[in-house]
Design a protein around this nucleic acid. Structure first.
Length: 417
RNA sequence: GUGGGUGUAGCUCAGGCGGUAGAGCGCUUGACUGUGGAUCAAGUGGUCGUGGGUUCAAAUCCCAUCACCCACCCCA
């Protein structure tokens, strides 16, 4: 039996790599434009970080983590998300000390033990940003603007922004209590799963894709329970977005999967992805730093799924800038020519020209075919005549023109093209 | 964890009423003794996912198993 990659993992092949590199390049470039610096954290962490950070009643922690004991019986978990590790890192390295606002971005693989489907993998790539130290609504809007900037730079056509607020410590408990009371009186009308949600995390009732959501239309609305500061914060975020001319839909159902969120939550969805259509999301987490043992520090961030973004770009047929793998192909005829070709190739490469040469000694016709398939702009032909005259025959594959160029001028001539 | 679908050549897929395995693309070679993209021709290529059963005979029927895909759950 052939050994296969583990379920839910996959190889990113050379034929796809330019798309990946492009998405990563755009992310870096946009994030740095907004003043973010990269941070890299370990791919595994102490299990406790996620239990405390993400929340022990969340699905991620309850059933989706890759957790194991190391040889010294420490409980280790492959990171399922990026925010908690970043918070751990800034606390451990005292990055908040002496800093006003700290802006970081990351790019890495995340691990969740879930049943794979379209746009969902056990190993997936996320890029994200985190901003610490600013409590004002302008930062919320800035992060959302950054995300929007990123998606539109990539060329997304079919993009939607969903926006919500989930209140804070002052007002959310009141609302949750009302919601529970409302739900309890008609619990028998809810599906089995929602009855479980009622126990564990009532806000998740809004996630139900069956009929239960209907029942809640009659129930209490979070917007009616927001405290004054939360209401004002939300209004400000919306005003900033309107100033930036970013369209959004208020979506009161948007409750995110981690316990650490407060106030603003948002999510971007894209067409062409099937059921898993969220290509990024985030929110404010003003209590997370405190939860992980430091003095209270406001924070907000968002993460985007690279795998899904690439699927959506393909579905939306967005053109991706690519370059041919080689610029110059050296066609070689005979063993003598090979000795010369090897040296010439090295000279071109030292000159920064992407160069490939024939390694299997086929007919010139076959070599031309290969050069064509590689989309090389030039073919340098080396046979007996060329060796004798120390002059290469250079063919422009676009125009079909051919000329003779002395060996010692080759690098310079080809570079200027 | 639950449901449905699919596994045949490197890739995309036919064949399915049991009777020695097919196409297109790719790759190699040739038509064109040192010149690509087009055309034509020849060649290359498969323990028909795996194991078992029925049968004179199984890619085809039956059972089991594995893998992948899609959906639920949840999320990126």
């Amino acid at each position: 039996m052939q050994i296969q990659s583990p379920k839910g993992t996959r190889d990113i092949l050379p034929s796809d790599i330019q798309t990946w590199q492009w998405v990563e390049k755009v992310a870096r470039s946009v994030f740095e434009t907004y003043g973010y610096q990269e941070i890299r954290t370990p791919i595994f962490e102490s299990t406790e970080l996620f239990v405390r950070g993400v929340g022990d009643t969340t699905d991620i922690v309850e059933k989706e983590m890759y957790t194991f004991d190391d040889k010294a019986n420490r409980s280790i978990t492959l990171r399922p998300e990026g925010t908690a590790p970043v918070v751990r890192a800034i606390l451990q390295n005292r990055l908040l000390e002496g800093t006003n606002v700290l802006k970081l971005y990351y790019n890495g693989r995340m691990y969740r033990y879930e049943r794979p489907q379209k746009g969902r993998f056990r190993e997936h790539w996320q890029v994200g940003v985190e901003a610490f130290g600013a409590a004002g609504a302008a930062v919320d809007a800035e992060v959302i603007t950054l995300a929007h900037h990123f998606y539109t730079t990539l060329g997304f056509k079919d993009l939607m922004l969903h926006l919500n607020t989930i209140g804070d410590r002052a007002c959310r408990p009141n609302y949750v209590a009302e919601l529970k009371a409302f739900t309890k009186s008609r619990l028998d009308q809810f599906c089995n799963e929602c009855q479980g949600r009622y126990e564990r995390n009532p806000l998740r009732l809004f996630d139900c894709k069956r009929g239960c959501r209907e029942i809640l239309n009659e129930g209490p609305r979070l917007v009616d329970y927001l405290c004054e500061p939360c209401r004002h914060h939300f209004d400000s975020v919306k005003r900033y977005l309107e100033l930036s001319q970013i369209d959004y839909t208020e979506n009161p159902d948007l409750v995110r999967g981690m316990d650490y969120y407060s106030r603003t939550t948002f999510e971007f969805t894209a067409g062409g992805l099937g059921a898993q259509n969220a290509i990024g999301g985030g929110g404010r987490y003003d209590y997370l730093v405190e939860e992980l043992g430091n003095k209270p520090t406001p924070g907000i961030g968002f993460g985007l799924g690279v795998d899904r973004i690439i699927l959506a770009l393909e579905a939306q047929e967005v053109a991706i800038p690519t370059q041919p793998p080689v610029a110059v192909f050296i066609a070689v005829l005979g063993d003598e020519a090979m000795l010369v070709a090897f040296q010439l190739a090295q000279r071109l490469r030292l000159g920064g020209i992407r160069t490939e040469l024939e390694h299997t000694g086929r007919s010139l016709k076959a070599q031309m075919k290969t050069a064509n398939k590689l989309d090389a702009r030039y073919v340098v032909i080396l046979g007996e005549d060329e060796i004798r005259d120390e002059t290469a025959t250079v063919r422009d594959m676009e125009t079909g023109d051919q000329q003779s160029i002395a060996f010692d001028q080759l690098a310079e001539k080809l570079r200027t093209h």
